[in-house]
Nucleic acid binder design. Structure first.
Lengths: 224, 224
DNA sequence: GCACCTGCTTAACAATTTGATAATATTATA
DNA sequence: TATAATATTATCAAATTGTTAAGCAGGTGC
């Protein structure tokens, strides 16, 4: 299992970006920086970091807004988000944590302490972030949007791919129909119940193997 | 899935224990207190809390020592440990986090902020809580919706699974028929009395072992 | 623009599974 | 043993999922 190591730092002070960025890189993290809220949001969607460090007071969107926006996107539900700011205002801190941030740090903070805190957070997060899922003879490449089974390429449509990808991300876990709807269609779109079934059917058909099990009244799970 | 809610607080100042304890209880946590490091260590082993708040400067063992000792015990590998102390000394903070603490808070801290931080920690913890029940040769996995007995998979329908799951969640406890009805069918649905029997029968049949005992006139209990 | 293709959703119906109940048999216990 | 409680069995209705085909929107090449 490969520990995720992509970190995005957003702060409007170049000095902070440089100091923290340098220290994180020295500790084996892959660092991207952003100078304001909008840039942070765009870069986050692009690079899908494992951890995002957000300054609260920034030009454009502030850190809390960025956090809120990101948490609405399914693929950022599990991403670690930490606020870093000079504000010692208690109300802000609570607001930050309640948007679903994982920690809240106040400047000034020494790089060493920061690294320690970040390591502690990652320690809790055991997740494979390579983007490639390999299960038996099946390979799912999130970046290439491709699926291989026994060296043979299988062409899946987008929804099919996302569905298989989701199920295979935790083999054995039963995904409730609601869970699937939220993760793939989002909370706003409403689609009929049979839609999931039809996609499942197509995946089963295209893969040719029965690796998706129905748990009646509950949901679906992936198993090889 | 039941959220862990047992918290142990260790501090040598009675005032702190009282204030924090009160606030945590008001937020639905079950609180135990300790007045020094040794007491904290003993109580931790006894009650197996989900979160431990440790003062660093305490009579007897200090907080870091307690943390180190606990982390050596397998059942405390996943326990949340947070340091709470007046020391703002950076070196101590790093030392704390490197022993495997999950956060580090400095006094003075307002109860609101404390609660927020603790909620944030639990939020993350609950995500990788497996929800697996293991009793003897029986394994019940809520996430996978699967039941294993001696390596053999047993397929249960939803109601059967819920029922077994409920009984096995507290082995030995007798669940009244009413209790079972409320937990599994809810208060609105009304089903006949024989319905429970039939489900119990199916579970017994499928498991092949007699681990559900009838307590006539009262209810059922799970025992291996 | 127009024909054509692809992917997504849905409707309609078939197939399957589940859960509840009735009817009857069995058991525990006063 | 009498009695109430539970076990067992078969049956049926309801819930759930599978399957197929059709409609629709968006994109592509001509």
């Amino acid at each position: 299992m490969v520990r995720g190591n992509k970190i995005l730092i957003a702060d409007d002070e170049p000095d902070i970006l440089e100091i923290i960025g340098f220290n994180l890189q020295a500790n084996g993290y892959e660092v991207t920086t952003a100078r304001n809220g909008d840039e942070a949001f765009e870069k986050a969607k692009k690079i899908l970091p494992d951890l995002i460090i957000l300054d609260i007071m920034m030009p454009g969107k502030n850190g809390i807004e960025v956090c809120n926006l990101l948490r609405m996107i399914p693929s950022f539900k599990e991403t670690l988000i930490v606020f870093l700011t000079a504000l010692s205002d208690e109300t802000t801190e609570i607001k930050g944590l309640e948007t679903g941030a994982d920690d809240y740090l106040t400047k000034p903070i020494s790089p060493k302490v920061l690294i320690s805190k970040i390591n502690a957070l990652f320690r809790r997060l055991n997740k494979d972030e390579t983007g490639i899922i390999k299960i038996g003879d099946l390979q799912i490449n999130r970046e290439k949007y491709s699926v291989k089974f026994k060296e043979a390429d299988i062409v899946l449509a987008r929804k099919e791919f996302e569905l298989l990808s989701l199920l295979a991300s935790k083999p054995g876990k039963v995904f409730l129909r609601n869970e699937i709807l939220n993760q793939i269609w989002g909370t706003e779109v409403i689609v009929g119940d049979r839609t999931i079934d039809v996609h499942i059917r197509k995946i089963r058909q295209k893969l040719g193997i029965d690796c998706i099990t129905t748990v009646k009244g509950v949901g679906y799970k992936f198993e090889m």
